[in-house]
Simulated assay, not measured.
Amino acid sequence: MRFALTIAMPMLGLTLAGTALAGGHFTDSLTFHPAGCEKVRECYLDGTFHYVDSKGKDWKAQKDDKTDGASIQDWAQSFIGEPFDPIFIRAAVIHDHYCDRHVRNMLWTHWVFYDGLLASHVSPAKAKIMYAAILIGGPKWIDLIPGKPCKQGTACIQSVSKVKLPNGAIVTTAEDAHSVIARGPQYDEPEVKAAIEEIRQKIESNPDAVSEEDILTEARKLPQNQFFFDNIDGVVINPPQNDIPQ
């Protein structure tokens, strides 16, 4: 069973709604090393692992990528399941690869986890709960976009030092060498746990009444998330004058 995906992202010029394929599909077998790594939640892929999402876009995790399984905190395992549950793990491996490398947009990366869960025959209700948890408490990142150099004698409209970063966020470098503002997951923060629990109850009560847009709206409500969602297209940074060729 598939849901019509209608997350509107006008700032990106992207629409996840529209004509979709019948469903996403994984194209490789998934195995890990060393033996028994699932017990300590530190596994490495034996080979490259591909996923083609329901829009036809290809995603892949690479040989020797590290994964800790699906992002299911201890307090949530009673109603979600174990991090290395076979029904979750394939989507989690793809999601981990892009969360660690920041080479694709945050919203697309979190959405592909949801899409992969549905392709793995996770129930729509549980897939929505897990997707909500990722959007609300999962890792966040946005691009730093190089702007035009400032002319001598003028002030740059913005530099990295003038960007007020959320608590816990840092400026770092993605695997493809572009700069990003990133922050790790916050699943154990009290307000995050409360928000996840609230939407879990709504979804379990009536899954069809909670859309993907509703989930995104709930994730945006947390003050610590607003910076990332408000700047999902990225933050333009002007190079300082001393970087401009004379």
Rank of each mutant, 00 (worst) to 15 (best):
A174H: 06
L21S: 01
V40R: 14
G168R: 05
V40N: 10
A91I: 14
N206V: 01
C150I: 11
D176L: 03
I196N: 04
V236Q: 11
C99D: 15
V180Y: 06
N167Y: 06
F49H: 07
A169E: 05
Y131A: 14
A125T: 03
A91M: 13
D74F: 06
A35G: 10
D85P: 09
K55T: 04
C99S: 15
H121I: 02
L107Y: 07
I232N: 07
A61E: 05
L135E: 11
Q186T: 09
W108N: 05
A8H: 07
I145Y: 04
P240C: 10
Y187H: 04
Q246D: 11
A174G: 12
T172L: 10
V235F: 04
G18V: 02
P139M: 04
A8G: 02
H33D: 00
I87T: 15
D100C: 01
G56T: 03
I7S: 06
L222A: 11
Q226M: 12
V160N: 06
F49C: 03
L30I: 01
F88D: 06
A182R: 09
F228W: 10
V171Y: 07
P190R: 09
A182N: 05
Q186S: 14
D64P: 02
H121M: 07
N206G: 03
D214T: 15
I89G: 12
N206E: 01
I145R: 12
A91D: 13
V52C: 02
L117K: 04
R2G: 01
V93R: 10
L21T: 02
H178Q: 11
R200Q: 04
D100A: 13
T48H: 07
T19Q: 10
S71K: 00
K162P: 00
I203D: 00
V112K: 01
A133Y: 00
T31Y: 05
S205C: 08
D68G: 03
D233Q: 10
H102D: 12
K151T: 02
C150K: 08
A177Q: 15
T6R: 13
K63Y: 00
K55P: 01
D64H: 14
A132C: 13
W111F: 02
S205W: 03
L107K: 00
E38K: 14
V210F: 13
F229K: 03
S71Y: 06
F3Y: 10
A194D: 14
D46G: 14
P124K: 13
I196K: 02
K164T: 10
W75Q: 11
V93Q: 12
D143A: 13
G23Y: 09
D58A: 13
W111Q: 01
Q246M: 09
S159Y: 03
K193L: 04
I129T: 11
V52N: 00
T27M: 12
M1D: 07
E191T: 13
T67N: 04
I170L: 08
W59F: 03
A35S: 08
